[in-house]
């Protein structure tokens, strides 16, 4: 992608986010039950439901509710969570930062492990080392996360080892050491899942580049192999890896509900599942929008970086 296309890409992203909001609203609205049934539980009587719906504004026509939400978001007001009865903005902001921290640390760890392994596997393709790395990667993608999480807790968080806190979250501001300690196990679980995937993508990308004319030319020019590998080949192969990382960021922001539940980590994934289960439409909308924005932005950044790294693409 040439950088000149950037404004258009941003516009496309915004259009997608708008479509996303409508889809989420319609889907959530169509679900049986509403916030009033969720709030009242077994205390629900027809009269109480009617009274609560009136108080929460759930008796208004759906398009009006959507317009109300949209108007708020466009002016920076994320509205009020129906079931928590608190402004959604601060709740989401906190969860967003938590999820972002977990995601970035995980991505850093996964990349630090996967990229070197992927490069080595590609360079020595067909060797026993390559086979070992590939085989190990299959183990990573085949263990369900809700087995991996408890196993890590039982191995590392309880006596005799008791190396790390089992679960929970400590704010960085309150205690940087506590913050890191609490991140170790969830990051480890997620890194196992991501590394496998990322490693294989890096290997594929690297193999593609190594077979390309571009690298062949470099070799023909008589450049030392190490320079060809690390300066020319990896630089280009990283484009693929970056695209995968961008997708992973989106995944880590919203899809790791189970890891967040197991490690009692207050992230966006648990929040959106809570919101869906309780039919808290403003909260579902807000969180989906935030996750969507991260997804769109991450892909955009990955594309730009790809364009800057890969000379083949930078040329118009």
């Amino acid at each position: 992608m040439a950088l000149a296309l950037l404004p258009r890409r941003i516009f496309y992203g915004l259009v997608s986010l708008a479509i996303l909001s409508v889809i989420i609203f319609v889907c959530t609205h169509l679900l049986p039950g509403d916030a009033a049934t969720a709030i009242l539980g077994e205390g629900a009587t027809p009269a109480a439901l009617a009274a609560l719906r009136a108080r929460l504004g759930l008796d208004q026509p759906a398009p009006l509710q959507f317009a109300h939400w949209l108007g708020g978001v466009l002016t920076g007001d994320f509205g009020v969570s129906t079931t928590l009865n608190q402004p959604a903005g601060p709740i989401i902001a906190e969860r967003f930062l938590n999820s972002m921290a977990l995601a970035l640390v995980t991505i850093f760890c996964a990349a630090a492990i996967a990229i070197p392994l992927g490069v080595v596997a590609a360079v020595r393709r067909g060797s026993r080392l390559d086979g070992t790395i590939l085989t190990a990667s299959y183990v990573g993608i085949s263990i369900p996360d809700f087995v991996l999480g408890p196993v890590l807790i039982l191995l590392f968080a309880v006596p005799p080892l008791a190396l790390f806190p089992s679960s929970g979250f400590v704010a960085f501001a309150a205690s940087p050491a506590g913050w890191i300690a609490h991140l170790v196990l969830p990051v480890a679980a997620l890194t196992v899942v991501l590394t496998a995937h990322l490693m294989r993508q890096t290997r594929s990308g690297m193999l593609d580049v190594l077979n390309s004319d571009y690298v062949r030319t470099a070799r023909l020019k008589g450049l030392p192999e190490r320079l060809v590998l690390w300066r020319h080949a990896l630089r280009n192969a990283l484009g693929t890896t970056l695209a995968v990382l961008a997708l992973d960021l989106g995944y880590l922001m919203g899809s790791i509900v189970i890891i967040e539940e197991i490690f009692a980590y207050p992230g966006l994934g648990r929040l959106i599942v809570y919101a869906v289960a309780n039919r808290d439409i403003p909260l579902v909308e807000d969180v989906a929008l935030v996750i969507g924005t991260v997804y769109v932005a991450a892909n955009l950044v990955a594309d730009i970086a790809h364009a800057m790294l890969d000379p083949r693409l930078a040329r118009p």
Partner: peptide, 23 residues
């Protein structure tokens, strides 16, 4: 644009919305 919008919803959440809706 539709596909991008759907891709930006976490897959699990998307599946959850559908199965909760369908029963």
């Amino acid at each position: 644009r539709f596909v991008d919008a759907l891709l930006s919803i976490p897959t699990l959440v998307f599946a959850l919305l559908i199965i909760v809706g369908l029963g």
